[in-house]
């Protein structure tokens, strides 16, 4: 058997081990319910509950933002994000949070928001009449 074959086989075995252990790094998107039960660090996909209050007061703490998230099981709950409020959050189509339950509330430290694409076929921007200018 050639040396390179041995090394090749060794690499394949190592990759297999790595990929098996890497399963722990992957998960399905959790739901609020499941995250609460397990207490694990998970990713939750959901949408912003637009009729519920959002709380962000950078004067008090710029790294604290709370809002209501509706998960895939249609459960809505208040969650906390330990980051400044993402730009354009109100218009997001989907919110993905990474975090875990702490003292009965889901606390996330990573967020990804998916926004509707800038251009949609139906939206053709028309010229507006020039509006009055104002200072201040």
């Amino acid at each position: 058997m050639k040396k390179s074959h041995i090394i090749g086989i060794a690499m394949i075995i190592i990759s297999a081990i790595i990929l098996i252990t890497a399963v722990g790094d992957m998960s399905t998107y959790a739901t609020l319910e499941a995250a609460k039960k397990s207490g694990d660090r998970v990713k939750i996909a959901g949408v912003l509950a637009k009729n519920k209050p959002m709380e962000y007061n950078p004067e008090k703490d710029p790294n604290w933002f709370s809002f209501y998230l509706t998960d895939t099981e249609n459960k809505t709950e208040k969650v906390i994000l330990l980051k400044p409020k993402p730009q354009d959050f109100e218009r997001s189509e989907q919110v993905i949070l990474t975090g875990s339950y702490e003292n009965g509330i889901f606390v996330a430290d990573e967020v990804l928001t998916k926004c509707p694409s800038k251009y949609k076929d139906e939206e053709i921007a028309l010229r507006k009449k020039s509006s009055n200018q104002s200072r201040q």
Binding site: K60, D61, P62, N63, L82, E102
Partner: peptide
């Protein structure tokens, strides 16, 4: 300025 917000003190990286 940031104490008492979270139990395990994940200090945020932004400041007012």
């Amino acid at each position: 300025a940031m104490t008492g917000i979270m139990e395990d003190q994940k200090l945020g990286s932004s400041i007012t």
